[in-house]
Design a protein around this nucleic acid. Structure first.
Lengths: 135, 135
DNA sequence: CTTGACCTTCCAGTCACTGGAACCCCATAT
DNA sequence: ATATGGGGTTCCAGTGACTGGAAGGTCAAG
């Protein structure tokens, strides 16, 4: 199977497959006689695995770890769960930050009339003291 | 004021101030006789403005836009509000994505016993069909 | 006069791709 | 036979927003 077909089947762009090979996330592909990369059904499964974990926000490094655990039939489920739980922590951390940002922005935009006049509480807030010096 | 002091006062690292200058987000700093960058209180205000908007997740490009609006006394509050509302949309979008990721990961980890045995629903899910083919 | 803490520039690395140039290969239509 | 179009190959550069580090100049204190 050529890289284009592998890309289609796995959902990972051809360019990205080559990139994953170049950084060692996947082993170098077998080559056909003409020099083209040649992929098997198993390779596609690996690419799909990568695709799914990437979509769940795991870093490429973590995906590498997950791939190793996947291949290692002696792994403990605890080691996998630990990696996943750590990632959940990071995601929740980020959600919290974004929610705080969101609330601040909503407070600001609520106070801005948003018309033709130049005076704007949003810019005022960006320009003035952050919060506590208003007391 | 030297760059180190400006960094301290504004909260923007010296390295980052130079970077902002290099990409044109801020104009080239005045130079003292020894060639050192020299910052004024007004420069510090600008850096603080940048710091605050960056912390609210605006891209450097958007921060540039906000700086222009800030300097332009003829701007309309509507233009500022529009930029902010657009950013709120992006933030909410991202929060939604992360919440969906979080839920998926929690569902997965809940089903994983996390002990010494190798069988693990998390890896199974990453390896198997995504969702719909389970039906 | 030396030490250490500043400052300067410039280049490289991060993360995870993505775009593009320049080239090769292959099947089909003319 | 050949032109065309669509694969594939490599390698280099760019993205965003910094950050680290090397190599060197400057300055105040001991």
């Amino acid at each position: 199977m050529n890289i284009g077909t592998a890309a289609e089947e796995s959902g990972v762009p051809a360019k990205t497959i080559r990139y994953y090979e170049s950084i060692g996330l996947i082993p170098p592909a077998r080559r056909a006689e003409n020099g083209y990369r040649d992929y098997s059904g198993f390779d596609i499964e690996t690419l799909k695995f990568i695709q799914r974990t990437r979509k769940l926000g795991f870093s490429v490094k973590d995906v590498g770890g997950l791939l190793q655990l996947w291949r290692d039939k002696e792994r403990t489920s605890a080691s996998v769960k630990a990696l996943a739980l750590r990632h959940i922590d990071e995601v929740e951390q980020r959600i919290g930050e974004l929610q705080s940002i969101r609330q601040t922005l909503i407070d600001l935009t609520d106070r801005c009339h948003g018309d033709d006049r130049p005076d704007c509480p949003i810019l005022d807030e960006f320009a003035q003291v952050p919060n506590e010096a208003r007391d």
